[in-house]
């Protein structure tokens, strides 16, 4: 187990280097720092001096990958790639274009993001699994058919519609909660209720349908027949035997996203004006702030890899057959 984890974590390093190389190539090779400076400064103020100053301020005045001008170690280290990438591995993300520390922003924005994402995830999981179980229990009846039809309908609706429609209905028409905004502490409840509700509803279609197929797959297996042959009731069969086995693919499918919950949701946060990491990302994209986008990309891949490792660990918890070696 320990050896396995160590191996997985070691494997994460080349992956993260790959991620960095890729984003670096996207941002700096396709678009030279000069291009960026020109764009940032605006058409009017572009002069060679202004560009140089802009680059120097941000440390973009070095060669990209190889610096032949300096000594032995500096050949690799005194380059934009090294300077901008190496520090990320110790989670030092530098400063955004407006001069704020990205690390601090991330730390303060994680809270609101989690306040939305975590309840959405947990409530969602319970709702989707229950709905799927219900459909499975009434499989091959009109109820099941209606449930599946509802799922297909719900998953055919754009996520934007859930948000806009929900805001319009709940906040504008019924005045139940504020349209958008966020506050810390107990006040946050009225701000997070609607986003969570919308998040849960928006996922019912695809998730419940997927879980239903998992349940149906399990129900066709031989051990279920054995359980019935023992004289167990259909409900007992479903809840003790099928659920336990179906949880393996379900859990391992969802565990991978748990670390990513920290990243928040782009759409929800920006629509509801929640100062989380999702809206931070969107703002950075719109402002074309590459430092922030790169930081978020790196953070996202670290969390994703953590999710993968967590998935493997969760296998050992829910499935006695799995031993990591």
């Amino acid at each position: 187990m320990i050896a396995y984890l160590v191996r997985r974590i070691l494997y994460a390093i080349p992956i993260l280097i790959g991620v960095n190389l890729l984003t670096f190539a996207l941002f700096f090779v396709v678009n030279t720092p000069d291009d960026m400076a020109r764009m940032q400064l605006g058409i009017k103020r572009v002069t060679p001096e202004a560009i140089d100053r802009w680059k120097q301020q941000r440390g973009y005045d070095k060669p990209l990958f190889l610096n032949t001008g300096t000594g032995s170690a500096g050949t690799f280290t005194d380059t934009i790639f090294w300077q901008k990438s190496a520090s990320m591995f110790v989670f030092d993300f530098g400063y955004s274009d407006d001069g704020r520390s990205i690390s601090r922003e991330i730390a303060t924005r994680m809270g609101p993001s989690l306040a939305i994402a975590l309840p959405t995830f947990l409530i969602g999981l319970v709702v989707y699994v229950s709905f799927a179980l219900l459909m499975t229990l009434f499989r091959a009846t009109a109820l099941d058919l209606a449930g599946v039809a509802l799922c297909v309908l719900l998953m055919s609706i754009s996520g934007l519609f859930y948000i806009i429609g929900g805001q319009f209905l709940v906040s504008k028409l019924w005045h139940l909660v504020p349209i958008s905004g966020y506050a810390g502490g107990a006040d946050s409840l009225k701000f997070v209720v609607l986003p969570i509700l919308i998040g849960v509803v928006g996922g019912i279609g695809s998730s419940s349908r997927w879980y239903r197929t998992i349940f149906l797959d399990e129900i066709g297996k031989d051990y279920v027949r054995t359980a019935r042959a023992k004289g167990l009731s259909e409900l007992r069969v479903l809840f003790t035997h099928v659920l336990k086995n179906a949880l393996i693919p379900i859990l391992t499918g969802v565990v991978v996203v748990i670390p990513l919950l920290f990243m928040g949701s782009l759409l929800t946060e920006s629509f509801f004006g929640i100062p989380g990491l999702g809206s931070y990302t969107i703002d950075a994209i719109n402002a074309q702030d590459f430092s922030v986008v790169r930081a978020m990309v790196f953070l996202g891949s670290v969390l994703y890899i953590a999710g993968l490792i967590l998935t493997d660990v969760s296998y050992t918890v829910v499935d006695p057959r799995v031993r990591l070696r």
């Binding site: 051990y223 054995t226 042959a229 023992k230 004289g231 035997h241 336990k244 086995n245 499935d319």
Partner: peptide
């Protein structure tokens, strides 16, 4: 009928590998 199944009348199947619940 559920009392009969597994009580008065029991059944074993062909594939013992698949007929037992793998996680119990």
């Amino acid at each position: 009928m559920r009392d009969v199944r597994g009580g008065r009348m029991a059944m074993i199947f062909q594939e013992p590998g698949l007929s037992l619940n793998p996680v119990m």
